[in-house]
């Protein structure tokens, strides 16, 4: 059964993966440095939003707090990859063994995923007992708590000043690979026994509980997996820009990732990925427009913020007219072929 589900739905991650590879190839063809950075940024957002989807999409519980895990991951990258000499100056409170550690960036991403997953387990075992709006606000409190700790713990996070010296990785391939890992991991979780159970609990909590699904436990699994993906994304984010501050991973990032998920449609993995691609393109266009208007005028520079206002407005409009997002709850797959096969549409759609 599970194997046939896998065969039926494998088209989705493959298609999304190909889309991401296509973006990477475009970046390679254009070859300009700022554009490279834009594509890296898109891949990072894909990781974050897919991480969010694993929890929000499958459980139906809105979490505002997942950027906290990205924050944890980002600082793991700072702790493990900065040269020991520099660490001593900016973060003197680190334990000795950590002070001496210097590992490659991919290893820091793995460690970051583990560290974030650990904290997701700890926070999740408390938060997953709540549901609905109370759960959402509790995740918000979690984000504020992590931010407050990282903004004040002078000796190991350098407080609100930025931690510099994280080795910068400029090649787009590691980010592409990480985004692909995130997409395939999310897909695999989504069709796994736990993912299906959680989606059942999302749609019909009473019936699911009556069928023996332990809803808090099912949510906790999703929370930990999504925390791990966010942690990996946070570490890579740190490597893409070379610095971290607590406010890099606060409300701004939370809003942008959540809006990408909502715009794309939080009911499906394709929605998560397409939301990133669509909104990132929109942001890029708005940026170009802002710059373009700036040249023609005399002293009046188009103030920053137009981009965010437009983004917020687009999001409200999409919520008004397509509350389920652009993709609705559907996933990208091979549409006609599946329909023409006699057995293809018999089963319930995933």
């Amino acid at each position: 059964m599970s194997l046939s589900v896998a065969r039926r739905t494998i088209a989705t991650p493959v298609f999304l993966g190909l889309l991401l590879v296509a973006f990477a190839l475009v970046a390679l063809a254009v070859g300009s440095k700022p554009f490279n950075q834009t594509i890296i940024d898109i891949f990072l957002k894909v990781i974050f939003v897919v991480g969010l989807w694993v929890f929000i999409g499958n459980s139906g519980v809105i979490s505002f707090g997942h950027t906290a895990f990205a924050c944890l991951g980002g600082y793991v990258a700072a702790w493990t990859t900065i040269k020991p000499m520099m660490k001593g100056m900016s973060m003197p409170g680190l334990p000795d063994w950590l002070m001496q550690t210097e590992i490659p960036f991919w290893a820091s991403a793995v460690v970051a995923a583990g560290w974030a997953a650990l904290w997701a387990l700890i926070f999740g075992s408390v938060l997953m007992r709540l549901s609905g709006i109370a759960a959402s606000i509790a995740t918000f409190a979690m984000l504020a708590m992590v931010n407050s700790i990282y903004s004040n713990w002078d000796s190991v996070t350098a407080a609100t000043s930025s931690v510099v010296g994280i080795p910068i990785v400029r090649s787009i391939w590691p980010y592409l690979i990480a985004a692909l890992i995130a997409v395939f991991a999310a897909w695999a979780y989504g069709i796994s026994r736990h993912g299906l159970a959680l989606r059942a609990a999302r749609d019909e909590p009473t019936a699911a509980a009556a069928s023996g699904i332990d809803i808090p436990a099912a949510r906790l699994i999703a929370f930990v997996i999504s925390g791990a993906i966010m942690g990996m994304g946070g570490a890579l984010y740190a490597h893409s820009i070379g610095i971290v501050t607590p406010d890099t991973f606060y409300l701004g990032l939370a809003f942008i990732t959540l809006s990408m998920l909502v715009v794309g449609g939080m009911g499906s993995l394709s929605g998560a990925v397409l939301g990133v691609l669509i909104l990132s393109s929109l942001i890029q266009i708005l940026r170009w427009l802002e710059a373009g208007v700036d040249i023609g005028t005399t002293t009046f520079a188009l103030p920053g913020g137009v981009q965010e206002i437009a983004l917020g407005a687009v999001m409200i409009l999409i919520l008004m007219f397509r509350p389920a997002g652009i993709m609705g709850n559907r996933d990208l797959s091979l549409p006609r072929k599946a329909a023409s096969e006699p057995e293809g549409l018999k089963g319930p759609k995933t």
Binding site: I62, G132, I133, L319
Partner: peptide
């Protein structure tokens, strides 16, 4: 549903 409204208000606050 409440979740949709909550996100809409989040977006409005951002605007």
């Amino acid at each position: 549903n409440p979740a949709t409204m909550m996100i809409a208000s989040f977006a409005l606050g951002f605007v």
